[in-house]
Amino acid sequence: MTQPEFNFADALREVAQARNINEMQLIEAFEQSLAQAYTRNVEPEKRIEVHLDPQSGELEVLIVREVVEKVEDEHLQISLADALELDPGVEVGMEMEFPVDREKFSRIALQAAKQTLTQKMRETERNVVFNEYKDREGQVLTAQVVRSDNKGNWFVELGAGEAILPPREQIPGEKLTPGNRVKIYLKEVRKTPKGPTILASRADERLLDYLLKQEIPEVANGIVEVKAIAREAGQRSKVAVFSHNSNVDPIGACIGHRGNRIQAVTGELGRERVDVILWDANTRDFIRNALSPAKVGLIEAQPDRREATVTVTPDQLSLAIGKGGQNVRLAAKLTGFKIDLRETAAISDLDAAMQQAMQDEQDGRDPGSAQSAFDALFKDSKSVATASPDDEQE
């Protein structure tokens, strides 16, 4: 064993601690790097083994040769006769180790150490980061904003690694500042030739779902269930909720006293507006609720085609559509139905009129009146807006 003036074990230990890398993995990488460097630069074709004692720092570089009767490759073998002079107990097939010249390996060791700390350590760090976060996809973490680049990407520090927030995953209009701490949704962790890529998001609807659970105890304990979320980050979201306890108002629980609960949620999202609506197992009622605050009329739903035609009076038209089509677009995403808004003449209650016609038909007072009422209702109506669940924000 040879102990050089420079203690590689201490140096590697300090680096491992500073970079949060497993010490033994780094030492193993150093040994492999030194063996490769020595073989390549000093003893080509020879089998080299390197051992670094992690406690004492003693470094040993050895040439390994197989004991044979007749030497066929002097680089890899030693004859039995020569071997017996060194060790009377050796036999054919055994391996013998011979230390290399100290001056040679000291120079190569320094070169290998540099290579290890710049290449192997980087690879080890990448594996540490990947292993740290590969099982944390789908979680919400608190991260520190670090920097941005000229492509509009922001980078946030997670602890062991750095995640990227591309423009599409940012909240439009939100001003991020280096040093600020923000909550992010860990969307994807994948390996690439340049190391692990961690994709974070502040625009994902699952971040909103997490915040609702954090701020609303009834959601966290399952009394109030979040059935669906439709989100256009930074502007507006719709959340459909349902209570499993008849004594608990799901909308009131989410809003909180004077809106304190929902305000805590929106405060984390740059004051994004969050509408809380009641989920209903009845498709027509769910679509009606999703289009609020507009008051719409008759709804014809085709569940098998995931399509619905909704009548709306002129005075409710702008509310139903929303600014830039946002209200109907969010309603379509929330319900999963393609919604066709049709403007019709103003009457007091379109649904009531239709229901009365259907009742008349059932009672035999006016056969066909329901269909007649339906036909009359849509005769002069016109389609004014259509939205599908997969429509993108304008």
Rank of each mutant, 00 (worst) to 15 (best):
195 G>L: 11
234 G>N: 06
214 Q>L: 13
207 L>N: 04
191 K>T: 08
207 L>P: 04
235 Q>M: 08
191 K>E: 14
214 Q>F: 07
223 I>V: 14
210 Y>I: 01
223 I>Y: 02
231 R>I: 05
193 P>I: 04
194 K>G: 10
196 P>N: 11
239 V>N: 04
225 E>A: 15
200 A>H: 07
222 G>N: 14
224 V>R: 00
210 Y>N: 07
215 E>W: 11
195 G>S: 11
223 I>K: 05
226 V>Y: 13
222 G>I: 03
210 Y>R: 02
224 V>H: 09
198 I>M: 00
199 L>Y: 09
223 I>G: 09
212 L>D: 13
204 D>T: 00
237 S>P: 03
231 R>V: 07
212 L>V: 08
195 G>P: 01
224 V>P: 14
190 R>C: 11
196 P>T: 07
228 A>N: 12
192 T>N: 11
200 A>I: 01
197 T>G: 02
188 E>T: 06
207 L>E: 07
208 L>F: 06
216 I>M: 04
205 E>N: 15
226 V>A: 12
197 T>D: 11
206 R>E: 15
211 L>A: 03
189 V>N: 05
190 R>S: 12
198 I>R: 00
185 Y>I: 05
239 V>D: 08
229 I>R: 04
217 P>E: 11
239 V>K: 08
213 K>Y: 10
221 N>P: 15
233 A>W: 02
211 L>Q: 07
198 I>D: 00
215 E>A: 10
205 E>Y: 15
200 A>M: 12
218 E>I: 03
191 K>G: 07
197 T>H: 13
220 A>S: 14
189 V>F: 09
200 A>L: 07
225 E>V: 10
239 V>M: 08
203 A>R: 02
211 L>F: 10
186 L>A: 09
222 G>V: 01
226 V>R: 01
238 K>C: 04
227 K>D: 14
236 R>Y: 10
238 K>Y: 13
194 K>P: 04
201 S>K: 01
206 R>A: 01
208 L>S: 05
203 A>V: 05
189 V>Q: 01
227 K>G: 11
240 A>I: 13
230 A>R: 02
192 T>V: 02
224 V>G: 05
228 A>M: 11
192 T>W: 12
210 Y>P: 07
223 I>L: 13
234 G>Q: 11
235 Q>R: 02
230 A>G: 09
236 R>L: 11
204 D>K: 04
196 P>W: 02
226 V>P: 13
200 A>Q: 06
213 K>D: 15
203 A>T: 02
238 K>D: 12
233 A>F: 10
213 K>G: 15
200 A>T: 01
185 Y>C: 02
235 Q>D: 13
208 L>A: 04
233 A>N: 06
188 E>C: 01
220 A>E: 14
232 E>G: 07
210 Y>H: 15
191 K>C: 00
194 K>N: 10
223 I>A: 05
201 S>F: 00
199 L>I: 03
221 N>T: 12
192 T>G: 09
208 L>N: 08
233 A>P: 15
186 L>V: 07
186 L>G: 03
218 E>T: 10
190 R>V: 06
206 R>D: 03
188 E>M: 09
221 N>A: 14
221 N>M: 12
